[in-house]
């Protein structure tokens, strides 16, 4: 929803949006009540807009203020609606950001029935790998038959990770499928705080990332680098 300045919209616009979104009793609401109701309605969106100074905060294009409920059927003849899942056992992992990945999986009908009928448990295993692709560490998350996706933490930067689905029956384990590996990146600067503390380096590397309002580009890893410098300053203050 494009309501960057919801308070600045006219009553006509607000009423139009409220009617499109089918807000309760919108005809009888005052302007302030309409704003309040719409703000509540779009609460999640507003939080997404706040402090968002990156490229994607600027909506690419819009020619209405509401999401039009499209009645037109765009499907071509002969096509079938998408299935809920595909009859296969597979798992995929997509990197969402530096430390988190989105994982989704499918179980074939045969595997699913084996899982549901028996005493087996299904676990999602996240494996941290060495550079030679051998396992360095792993942890398991037990998942239920109704689960088909998970957001997985990749706690240590600079390593590769691979997830797999494992069927466990007592002491026995059966690896059903494995994802491709996902690599994370550990920045060189995070391991060289002495360089980061140098004012020349700071000016050269960080100044292009400081935004107009004085804040630094929103990014957890950059914030971690700044925290290294801040911690150092605090320690210096304390020792003084």
């Amino acid at each position: 929803m494009v309501l960057i300045n919801i308070g600045s919209l006219s009553e006509n616009e607000l009423r139009n949006i409220a009617s499109q979104e089918d807000l309760e009793d919108w005809e009888n609401l005052s302007r302030d009540e309409l704003i309040e109701a719409l703000e509540d309605f779009y609460d999640d969106d507003d939080s997404r807009l706040e402090g968002d100074s990156s490229g994607s905060s600027m909506r690419k294009f819009v020619n209405t203020l509401t999401d039009v409920q499209l009645e037109n059927d765009l499907s071509l003849p002969g096509t079938e609606p998408l299935p809920e899942s595909y009859n296969e056992t597979s798992i995929h992992m997509i990197l969402k950001d530096a430390n988190w990945a989105y994982v989704f999986w499918s179980l074939s009908a045969q595997v699913a029935s084996e899982f549901e009928e028996g005493s087996a448990t299904l676990v999602l295993r996240n494996v941290r790998m060495n550079s030679d692709e051998s396992e360095q560490a792993s942890y398991d998350i037990e998942v239920s038959p109704s689960d088909d996706n998970w957001t997985v933490e990749l706690p240590h930067l600079g390593y590769s990770y691979q997830v797999s689905l494992v069927l466990k029956k007592g002491e026995d384990e059966k690896v059903l499928c494995k994802s491709s590996t996902v690599s994370t990146t550990k920045s060189w600067l995070s391991t060289h705080p002495d360089v980061l503390r140098d004012s020349t380096t700071f000016m050269t590397l960080l100044s292009p990332l400081v935004l107009k309002g004085g804040t630094v580009l929103e990014n957890k890893q950059i914030q971690d680098l700044i925290d290294i410098i801040d911690d150092d300053s605090t320690e210096a203050e304390v020792s003084r």
């Binding site: 060189w188 600067l189 590397l205």
Partner: peptide, 14 residues
């Protein structure tokens, strides 16, 4: 913008 400062290699000139 952050592709340089977060590189696994040492960035020299920003």
């Amino acid at each position: 913008s952050q592709s340089l400062i977060l590189s696994a290699d040492e960035p020299e000139r920003g």
